[in-house]
Design a protein around this nucleic acid. Structure first.
Length: 426
RNA sequence: GGGGAGUUUCCCGAGCGGUCAAAGGGGUCAGACUGUAAAUCUGAUGGCUAUGCCUUCGCAGGUUCGAAUCCUGCACUCCCCA
């Protein structure tokens, strides 16, 4: 079990590059080895792009080793130029501190069930006290400029108009020093990351050799991309976040449900912990019975549970049932409000629904489902308007007390997927 | 500084005195089909208290019964020569 980490990565398509495989295997052949991956706190939440690294750490734990998650409290002050085309804006120390705290919570939560001792460290803790001159003498002196200039991350930026600043150029020194420090402090000798991290990882390995005559190792995994060329984890409305306040469990679930077949297969391998037998079975099922979309279903379930827990998964599935044609009328007011929490809503006076009622056209416009009354009218006439999931085709239709689902809510919908809530309060 | 071309509705782009809310394409929104997919097909696409009314064709004036279309001035963009 313990030496299978590399094979496991390879089988699941998680292996892009690594340092000498035999040496790696050798070091990993004893249990309890520490392996690290870094996370820069560029926002107050991680997103789907970070999921790969988190899952890698879980696999490290599953293989009998101890994952180390490094928070970039210090490196986040600088900004990693790898894989970026432009200079980053600096974060204020306050923002950064808040981000570190939030990201740490997420990392701990995802790794909580990893089944091994988990280390979470912050490089600000050892960087803070280091003076500039000291750093240049102790670290900078051992890193040849030719080596730094040779890195892809640097080269590609130098060839561009924007270039890069000395600050970002120095980033790799900090990350290299992190690696050496962790090898000192935790005897952590393997760093894993996305393929864009290769340059930074090898910089650390090189520094370890020069400074400590120590063998450090690195593994990178391919970056997740979708078959249509867009970035994994990005939607038209932005990134898919792990924080439920930014991306609700329902939308998180739906993101995976909507992947195309090939991408879903890839994600199933790389991101879930389902045994390979089940994955192979799902591959086969996908070929024979693609319409059932078992792969997407399993993927969405596994990842939603991993990130949002059982409760999150339950609410995501409940919402899914309603959003895909389920009956609205039978639901309790509280459930209804929870399910539609993320959907745009608009408050009307309860009296609007008296007597003749509120024209549907007006409700559609006010809730933002239609840009104008004219458009609302069109939508209705073309059969795209629904009240509580029942199609309404009369443009003159008015909402009355009879339409209230629950005590004060009417569920409006335009087309297949756009929902909005009209709330009627006294 | 001199000469030329242009500025049209979300975008590209036709229109060059009435039939222009303005062709065509893209996008977007609905519908059908479907696997909550892709592709395809259909319809719609300035606003409104709606068989009519109001506002749009760089900006401001003018000619005309009538202007996106003609004239004058201004602004901006592009190209060529200094």
């Amino acid at each position: 079990m313990t030496d299978s980490l590399l094979d496991d990565f390879r089988d699941r398509g998680l292996l892009h590059q690594s340092t000498d495989a035999n040496e790696l295997r050798g070091w990993l052949s004893s249990p309890g080895r520490r392996v690290y991956a870094g996370f820069d706190p560029t926002a107050d939440s991680l997103h789907v792009g970070h999921l790969v690294a988190l899952v890698l750490l879980r696999r490290v734990a599953a293989a009998g080793h101890e994952p180390v998650a490094l928070l970039g409290g210090a490196t986040g002050m600088i900004g990693d130029p790898s894989g970026r085309s432009e200079e980053r804006n600096l974060l204020s120390p306050e923002e950064l501190a808040a981000n570190v705290a939030a990201v740490e919570r997420q990392i701990r939560s995802v790794l909580a069930t990893a089944g091994s001792t988990v280390h979470v460290v912050n490089n600000a803790d050892w960087m803070r006290g280091v003076g500039y001159l000291e750093f240049l003498r102790d670290v900078g002196k051992h890193v040849p400029l030719s080596q730094m200039l040779g890195k892809d991350s640097v080269k590609s930026r130098l060839e561009r108009d924007g270039g890069l600043s000395y600050t970002e150029f120095s980033y790799m020194l900090l990350q290299a020093w992190d690696f050496v420090h962790l090898s000192d402090a935790l005897d952590c000798r393997v760093q894993i990351g996305g393929s864009d991290q290769w340059g930074n990882i090898t910089a650390g390995i090189e520094l370890g050799r020069r400074l400590r005559s120590r063998d450090l190792h690195g593994i990178t995994c391919p970056l997740l991309t979708k078959s249509d060329g867009t970035k994994m984890g990005k939607t038209a409305s932005g990134a898919v976040w792990l924080d439920p306040k930014r991306t609700s469990p329902y939308r998180f679930f739906q993101y995976w449900m909507n992947l195309d077949d090939h991408d879903a297969g890839v994600c199933l391998r790389r991101l879930t912990e389902l045994p390979m037998e089940e994955i192979t079975a799902l591959d086969q099922n996908r070929g024979e019975n693609a319409a059932a979309r078992h792969t997407q279903q399993r993927l969405a379930e596994e990842l939603t549970r991993l990130v949002h827990g059982d409760d999150g998964l339950t609410s995501a599935k409940q919402a899914t049932a309603v959003f895909f044609g389920g009956d609205v009328e039978g639901l309790a007011e509280a459930t209804l409000i929870e399910i539609f929490a993320e959907v745009p809503s608009h408050a009307f006076a309860l009296s609007a629904v008296d007597n003749d009622g509120l024209p549907l056209v007006e409700a559609l416009q006010a809730t933002g489902l239609a840009a104008s009354r004219s458009q609302a009218r069109r939508t209705i006439e073309q059969g795209g308007a629904y009240v509580n999931n029942r199609r309404i085709q009369d443009a003159a239709y008015c909402l009355t007390k009879n339409d209230l689902a629950g005590r004060q809510v009417v569920v409006l919908r335009s087309g297949k997927k756009s929902y909005a809530l009209a709330r009627f309060t006294g």
